[in-house]
């Protein structure tokens, strides 16, 4: 990492997968190869087309150092050792070649984030770089310690978490007076949730 908004990757013949167009500089010998469908093969390509969880990815291979950045958003490194990272495709910047990516159904929660009904999962061993608007706050969820998150501030989560969609819409919402935080995602189980100090526009307006 260089600062918190540029990711420097040293390559020695190995490769990383990164979002198309996120390279800002490199030295040494690099080849950039566009990978259709997120490098997940034909099935992955079709799934992504259907689900709208689009992700244009390039494979960067070579010798030297390559710098990645995305609209000056904060970059958070996540170390995975076998567990699964769930992240929105638009928040995933870069993954090591050893990690597998795929699509998954999230239901109503995804829709509430304004990101469609599907999300991206990353599995395996290695580093993944996740972008967020402002440095992400990492919150632990444990048994008996549920966490509720504003859909617009959710970035990613790891571990074995059960998520459910919570509303406290009452008759007051119907007459136009709401608590303003009517829609939340509830996380239960064991894991970590990444929250950004900013809210995306969601279908629930400013909720």
């Amino acid at each position: 990492m260089q600062g918190s908004r540029v990711l420097a990757v040293d390559l020695a013949g190995d490769s990383v997968k990164a979002r198309n167009g996120s390279m800002v500089a490199y030295d040494g010998q690099m080849t950039f190869k566009r990978m259709s469908g997120g490098g997940e093969g034909l099935r992955g390509l079709v799934t992504r087309r259907i689900t709208g969880e689009k992700m244009t990815v390039m494979e960067v291979q070579g010798q030297g150092t390559c710098w990645f950045a995305e609209r000056a958003t904060e970059i958070n490194l996540v170390r995975l050792s076998g567990e699964r990272l769930h992240v929105e495709a638009s928040n995933l910047l870069c993954t090591e070649a050893t990690l597998r990516t795929g699509t998954e159904f999230t239901g109503l929660r995804g829709a509430s984030e304004g990101h469609g009904l599907f999300t991206t999962k990353v599995e395996g061993q290695g580093w993944a770089a996740v972008t967020s608007d402002g440095p992400a706050v990492i919150l632990r969820v444990a048994r008996g310690l549920p966490l509720r998150v504003d859909p617009g501030a959710y970035v990613a989560h790891t571990g074995n978490l059960k998520q459910s969609f919570r509303t406290d819409v009452t008759w007051r919402a119907v007459v136009g007076e709401t608590g303003g935080e009517s829609f939340q995602i509830e996380f239960e189980g064991d894991g970590l949730v990444y929250v950004q100090p900013s809210e995306r526009r969601t279908f629930a307006g400013d909720a």
């Binding site: 706050v137 919150l139 998150v149 504003d150 303003g180 935080e181 929250v195 900013s198 400013d206 909720a207």
Partner: peptide, 8 residues
Amino acid sequence: KGKMVAYY
């Protein structure tokens, strides 16, 4: 409204 991002 809308400034809460998460809570326990």
